[in-house]
Design a protein around this nucleic acid. Structure first.
Lengths: 193, 193
DNA sequence: CAGGTAAGTAAGTATTACATACTCGTCTGG
DNA sequence: CCAGACGAGTATGTAATACTTACTTACCTG
């Protein structure tokens, strides 16, 4: 990738720390990157596409490392926990990543036709695979659709850190992981005898 | 409210059926409403504020009715289920409402300073109150932060219907309610003896 | 019926996203 | 060793857009 490309990507990342995507202009990106606006057009054609490319970089950074991690873990519930912790870790380390994924891309239909979304889908599918494995080996109940279980888990992850992401507060990935797993594994009822 | 006000609100609702908020222009809104652009400015000052006002209408429509509903229900878990069903019902009936709340408002920081967000907070607090009640009377476990429990529940609701909202597919509020409650109440593990 | 007030509009303007056509340097094959 | 292809990057334009001002018109009220 030519230097200009990376400068532009870097500029957007930088600007996203301060303001939301829609409030960032071509002019600002170009100025921050130290290049001409037309170069953005050349490499990305439009602002959204640039955003998807930035998200993609983050996804690639984390996806591989997590997949490795999961291979050496046995048991569906253990894997699930590991995957959840990886999520929280990523979101807490790279706030920009979290902001883009949770707040900025979903409102635009063409995101769901982007390559980047394919990566997200792939990642979501690997969680589905873990659940399926758990259902097969009896760890996980089979009377709720695996897809729906996955959605509820992903929703739980997101909403647990959403306030901290929105308001820029710190959070502890480990604490959230423990609580979420307790919730997911046992539900909210108090222990009955 | 003067007729122009309602025409503008109606126009935005109509346009949101076809496209995302950012792709809707002042000119389109004005044309659809049959008024001058300057009238939008007069009543709403900017597009986002108009969006918040539209969301507010929806929130008011549902919030009152749900609160009534909850008063005649006893038991925290029962109330929780009712609240969850109300959510799914609202989202499935008014897709525009769901789209705005889940996809369109969160990415703009000033939303969190709007009156509309206060309504959302109020609604979220009433779920928190249900959980607190459940903790007090022993229905709900006390070893996980009530706030976090609420977040996980809200996240579950959202993510269960998110794909259908994004891709414009139908869904059954009752089925989703049953599944989500099963999940929330008992967790994902298979029943152990 | 004077005068305040609310609804609504005509007519801007600065900014913005996007687009075209160019320059400049480097590398490559004959 | 040089013609010319090619890739990086830019100067310059343009239509559209969000927002603003100053105005008109109709009504209501004392």
């Amino acid at each position: 990738m030519p230097p200009g490309y990376d400068k532009i990507v870097g500029a957007l990342k930088l600007l996203l720390k301060e303001k939301e995507f829609n409030a960032i202009t071509w002019a600002e990106i170009a100025r921050t990157a130290g290049v001409n606006e037309a170069l953005i057009y050349k490499y990305f054609h439009d602002k959204r596409n640039l955003l998807y490319k930035v998200l993609r970089q983050y996804l690639e950074k984390y996806a591989a490392q997590v997949e490795e991690d999961l291979k050496v873990t046995s048991g569906a519930l253990n894997k699930l926990k590991k995957a959840i912790r990886a999520h929280f870790n990523a979101y807490s380390q790279d706030r920009i990543f979290a902001k883009i994924l949770i707040l900025e891309v979903r409102n635009y239909p063409d995101y769901f036709e982007s390559e980047t979304y394919e990566l997200v889908k792939h990642w979501a599918n690997s969680i589905l695979a873990i659940i399926d494995e758990g259902v097969r080996n009896g760890e996980i109940r089979s009377d709720i659709s695996a897809r729906h279980l996955r959605q509820m888990i992903l929703g739980g992850i997101e909403h647990l850190c959403l306030p901290e992401i929105v308001f820029g507060r710190e959070f502890s990935p480990d604490t959230l992981t423990e609580e979420l797993c307790e919730f997911i594994f046992h539900g909210i009822r108090s222990a009955e005898e």
